[in-house]
């Protein structure tokens, strides 16, 4: 009986050592995963999906968390700023888009010309009326720069009328983990208010709608005034040119280049400020 008790005690002791070893091994694994940024065993106890709340808290205190969709983003991402995106267009012109400083939302679609999962988005963008984006939302496509993308391929995919910026730097600035990837910027606050991966554009549109509801007051803009009546844009300038040509005023006509206000307003009309600086030649 005594011998059996001794054997059982030894067995229990061995099992205890084994369990302790397993627990330590498990702790080492969790620690390694945490160091890799997998979010397991987070000391704060936060949900992996809410990691952005921790990283969004800056020195000024907590900042509202960007909405996310798709899988959790890498833990080392730490910025919510929305810098200006500068690059080139597929045709070789230069283009810079400033998502901040306006009273609208800007949806940045980081796409590649070759990725299979981007193809559906490129196709959707050919039907802008069916995208389902709320009013006052500007859509901008950002691909990597010409050193990593073939401009001709991007041109073939991009619909006319949609701004496309080729900028590898922007992918770094916005910490884009891969394509396709979407970032929503609130122009008023100049911050990213949503980001993530989606399989269909309807998911992105839903993200925009949710963000718009959170942001509140995009429905009634305060900046733009409905000045435009009749023709506008390049058509208006072209129509003006035609009128001038029909009136016999051709390029180079002296009447187009007044050197003083008197050339514009005859003296008998009366200039309230006769000593004003000549047009176009002011100091």
């Amino acid at each position: 009986m005594i011998a059996l008790a001794i054997v059982l005690s030894i067995v229990v002791l061995l099992l205890s050592v084994l369990v302790a070893g397993l627990l330590r091994s498990h702790a080492d694994i969790l620690k390694a995963l945490h160091d890799l940024g997998a979010g397991v065993g987070e000391p704060t106890g936060s949900d992996p999906h809410n990691q952005s709340s921790a990283r969004a808290a800056g020195p000024q205190g907590p900042i509202s968390v960007p909405l996310t969709m798709g899988p959790p983003l890498p833990g080392e991402r730490s910025s919510i700023s929305a810098p200006t995106i500068a690059g080139v267009t597929p045709s070789g012109d230069a283009l810079a888009v400033a998502p901040s400083g306006s009273d609208q939302l800007t949806l940045l679609a980081f796409l590649s010309s070759g990725c299979a999962s981007c193809a559906g988005f490129w196709k959707d963008f050919h039907r802008p009326d069916e995208l389902g984006l709320p009013p006052r939302t500007r859509l901008v496509v950002v691909t990597k720069g010409p050193e990593m993308e073939i401009p001709g391929e991007v041109t073939a995919q991009a619909p006319p009328g949609l701004p496309v910026v080729m900028s590898t730097e922007a992918w770094g600035d916005y910490e884009v983990p891969g394509s396709p990837f979407f970032v929503l910027v609130d122009g008023n606050s100049g911050r990213r208010i949503g980001e993530g991966v989606a399989n269909q554009f309807s998911q992105v549109a839903e993200l925009v709608r949710r963000a718009q509801v959170d942001a509140g007051e995009f429905a009634e803009g305060s900046r733009g005034q409905p000045h435009a009546e009749g023709l506008d844009g390049p058509e208006r300038e072209l129509a003006n040119d035609r009128e001038l040509t029909a009136a016999g005023i051709l390029p180079g006509d002296p009447s187009l280049y007044p050197s003083s206000l008197a050339d514009v307003c005859p003296p008998d009309v009366g200039d309230p400020h006769p000593n004003r600086t000549p047009i176009g030649m002011a100091n």
């Binding site: 409905p226 506008d232 208006r236």
Partner: peptide, 13 residues
């Protein structure tokens, strides 16, 4: 946008 702002200046705040 027109070369001299046609289509843009009407949007200015």
């Amino acid at each position: 946008v027109g070369d001299f702002g046609g289509g843009a200046v009407t949007l200015m705040g």
